[in-house]
Simulated scan of single mutants.
Amino acid sequence: MRSVGNFTPYRIRMSKEKLVEVNTAGFILKPDSPEIKPLYEKIKAQFEAKGISVMLSEKSAKMIGLEGVPFEEMCAKADFLVSLGGDGTLLSLVRRSYGHHKPVVGINAGNLGFLADITLDDVDAFLARLLLGEYRIDDRMMIEGYVQKSSGEKKRFIAFNDVVITSPEPSKMVRVNASIDGERFNSYTGDGLIISTPTGSTAYNLSAGGPILYPLTQAFIITPVLAHSLANQRPLVVPADFSIELDAEKYRAIASIDGQEVYELEEGDILYIAGAKKGAKLIHRKEHNYFSVLREKLHWGDRNW
């Protein structure tokens, strides 16, 4: 830790966790992309050349005409999991494998790549360093919650990036009442409301004008979308040990989980959100620097973009 002047700045602690074994990798592929088969076969060969066997999930295998294994079996048997695709593929893998708590690495075959940050050209070098223990595992906050229907039924979910409440009809507004630890604090009227994790702060939250949080921070970001009033409609950051309760007063609404699952909210339904007991484990290169990623992906400091 570098000292500045007469003081040493605070640093969020990085995890020192390592994989117990590096023998088997479980793969999922970008969905609806059968053209990814040659790329997968090339990367599979790179893994096997380093002595790491590869398991492919059944759904991904079927997409490219190969044999695979059931997803749950793959998660149980693999030492770590790999998404080959973009950030959406990694998001899906983290959520679906949450109960197994296996570390996940993303190989970027997509576009932006905030989360899936191992490039196709880096795979060989990354594997060599993985086998030497020269990597790190980041523990990223996740959301767990449920929709409680007026009937008493509970529909539970896990989110990695965000939970977004909007109208099911385009151009229709919603009114979302928000409480923290059971105490009402605001009502948001507009196109919607985003509850984001720090990891999700560079997703829809950023587009809606919310702040970027360092991904190892433990906090929620509450960001209104196109608010109809500016008086009380500002982004808010709250610690992750608070619980958040939301209801869409007098309006039909939908809750989108990481943009991949949707739940209907009717009058009388309540959406409960809390920090998950365990975070997502993301494997990164040891030298991975979040601020460099921001500079590259968001063109910070680039006058020609």
Rank of each mutant, 00 (worst) to 15 (best):
S3W: 12
R11P: 01
K18M: 13
K30N: 14
D32N: 10
D32M: 01
P34N: 07
I36P: 12
I36E: 06
Y40N: 08
Y40R: 09
I43E: 01
K44M: 14
G51L: 06
I52W: 04
M55R: 02
E58A: 04
S60T: 06
G65R: 07
P70F: 13
E73R: 10
G88I: 09
T89A: 10
L90D: 00
V94T: 12
R95T: 04
Y98H: 15
H100T: 05
V104H: 00
N111K: 09
F114H: 01
T119Q: 06
T119V: 02
A125R: 09
A128Q: 08
R129K: 14
L131Y: 07
L132D: 15
E134C: 13
M142E: 00
Y146N: 03
Y146V: 02
Q148Y: 04
Q148K: 10
K149S: 00
S151D: 13
K154Q: 15
R156P: 02
F157A: 08
I158Y: 07
A159E: 08
D162Q: 09
T166D: 02
P168M: 09
E169A: 05
V174L: 10
N177Q: 09
D181Q: 00
F185D: 03
I195N: 04
I195V: 11
S196W: 06
T197Y: 05
A203E: 11
Y204G: 03
S207Y: 03
A208G: 10
P211G: 04
P215T: 00
L216E: 07
F220L: 03
P224D: 13
S229V: 12
A231L: 14
A231G: 00
Q233S: 15
V238T: 02
P239F: 10
A240L: 06
A240G: 13
D247G: 06
K250M: 08
A253G: 12
D258F: 14
G259H: 05
Q260V: 06
E261L: 11
E261V: 07
Y263G: 11
L271P: 06
A274V: 03
K281C: 02
I283L: 05
R285E: 05
S292H: 07
V293E: 04
V293F: 03
R295N: 01
E296F: 07
W300E: 01
W305V: 10
